[in-house]
């Protein structure tokens, strides 16, 4: 599903987002992307859906060479990828229903199907009573679930989640992880960027660890001793 070859991402002013990262993720995998704040997790995700272009190296996502994709083909790629943004990126002037439906609207689904799928997705996430609310009138956990609903409503082959449990209390975080696990169980390839040790401890998935832009560890689940080692990253 994803191949990265010697990818380097250099921001203006000689800041490195990523340095020489090579990684391969197969269809149907569930991967944690972890490392301290500023390690390059968000940068890696943004490269995958074409929000950034790598300074060096090649990136292949679902058979497309993203590093060489024309700006006209990027929308097509993004329709295959559900993205949960760290800051949600909800449309503040639209209702919850519209925020979730936009994914299907862009995909060109018939109105009736759009309505049915959006409704059922929002109900599944416990937002059935919030359809006509604006995002800013919702709690953080509810906004997070709207963002998840938007990313998943189209059943994307690939889900990228950037700190999806970021500022939520532990119970809510588990709810969110259940929803993501559910999507994974139905065949979606999942990458979750997180620096929450609680999550890593709880779910025995493959971990890709970044530090200062470099890939420092890539561990398969079967390589974990039981119990999984506790990794605590400084939070800044």
């Amino acid at each position: 599903m994803i191949q990265m070859y010697h990818v380097e991402m250099r921001y203006p002013g000689e800041t490195y987002g990523l340095r020489d990262v090579s990684v391969s993720i197969k269809r149907g995998e569930f991967v944690f992307l972890t490392g301290p704040s500023g390690a390059g997790k968000t940068t890696l995700l943004r490269l995958l859906f074409g929000a950034e272009h790598p300074s060096m190296g090649q990136i292949v996502v679902a058979g497309r060479n993203v590093s060489r994709l024309s700006s006209a083909s990027i929308p097509e790629l993004r329709r295959q990828i559900g993205v949960i943004f760290q800051d949600f990126k909800l449309l503040s002037e639209r209702t919850v229903f519209e925020n979730v439906g936009i994914t299907l609207e862009i995909a060109g689904l018939p109105r009736r199907e759009l309505r049915a799928r959006t409704w059922s997705m929002l109900r599944r996430l416990g937002l059935g009573h919030r359809l006509d609310h604006r995002p800013r009138t919702l709690s953080g956990g509810e906004q997070q679930r709207v963002a998840i609903a938007r990313a998943l409503v189209n059943d994307p082959p690939l889900l990228l989640a950037d700190e999806p449990t970021g500022n939520l209390d532990p119970d809510l975080a588990l709810d969110i992880m259940d929803i993501i696990a559910d999507a994974h169980a139905r065949g979606t390839t999942v990458i979750v960027a997180t620096h929450d040790p609680g999550l890593l401890e709880r779910y025995p998935h493959r971990r890709i660890v970044l530090d200062n832009g470099r890939l420092v560890m890539d561990r398969r689940p079967d390589a974990f001793p039981t119990p999984a080692p506790q990794v605590v990253w400084p939070v800044s």
Partner: peptide
């Protein structure tokens, strides 16, 4: 601007 940026991020094409 925000709206356009978000539309783009969730896969809206130029015409949309």
């Amino acid at each position: 601007t925000d709206e356009i940026q978000i539309q783009r991020l969730v896969g809206a094409g130029g015409l949309f």
